[in-house]
Amino acid sequence: MKEQEIYLLITRYLANQTSTEENERIADWIAESAQHEQIFEDIKLLWQASAPKPNADVSGAFNKLRSKIGQETNKPVISHTTSRIKWYAIAASVVAILTFSGLLFYHFGSSPTSTQFKEVVTTAGQKKKIRLEDGTAVFLAPQSTLRFPGHFSSQRNVELRGQAYFEVSKNPHRPFVVHTASLDVQVLGTHFNVSSYQNQNATKVSLLEGKVKVTISDNGLDEYLLSPGQELAVNHINHQVYRYALDSLAVKGWMSNTLIFKNEKLVEAAHKIEQMYGVRIVFADQATAETNLYARFGNEPLQNVLETIAASGNITYHIEGNKIYFTLKH
């Protein structure tokens, strides 16, 4: 191969722009000699060293852009109520967004300045309590991620994947907003739970104290004010929004390792058991998965939970390592 050809092949490989066949060609070429391998390593070194560096001027530029968008959205031509409302919501969070600039570095994973933006992650079976700089307490459920800026500005924005219970410190002048994939929750000082696991078919907001405003991200228009004791659920499948009285034990159960199943299908209960105990649950068939379950477990060992489920549902189980297999008795 000509030198130009191989140099470009290697860089395209490093940029993930090669096909499988090309990857094989590179591998063969490298294997041909130590000298080839050295060239590959040298180019790789150069390629990694020349990763884009974060640019300090960009934050200033983004502010300019933001004011430009502000002007444009206020022009009569496009001033549908929708875009206006949405934009005002954004304008209100102008200062806060700046603190998200660390996010870029997070995405590139290549900068020491990512300390600006913090991320707390829990694995299955793990819970964490986070105290934010404004005094807000966040209890992060298993298999969840909370992202928040090191310093809050005028609006307190956090991003949640999974589930968390929030005790937000009161400050009417600095709204606290929880962003999830499907909805945003804005609060003034309150206790509430947000559950937005991707493998569950609904995102739920449960309010125990205070007041929250929920904005559904799908259209940016639907806003719901919740009163204490209410739960709002957005179904990801039919996009319906439901509001109903909550069961506070069920909502807060995960914090005290309490599992409450009220006529839930075993497959849905399984998600919660997996999260709490860090196991994988496998069903022998659809019929087993659809068995209904009515039970309550208060911080009990996994063994007890499994025994009870087996006893109540005419089900047997066996454990292989980290996996639990459920089968209907015949």
Partner: peptide
């Protein structure tokens, strides 16, 4: 903003 920072 991330997209902006990346491509600006």
């Amino acid at each position: 903003e991330s997209l902006f920072q990346k491509y600006y």
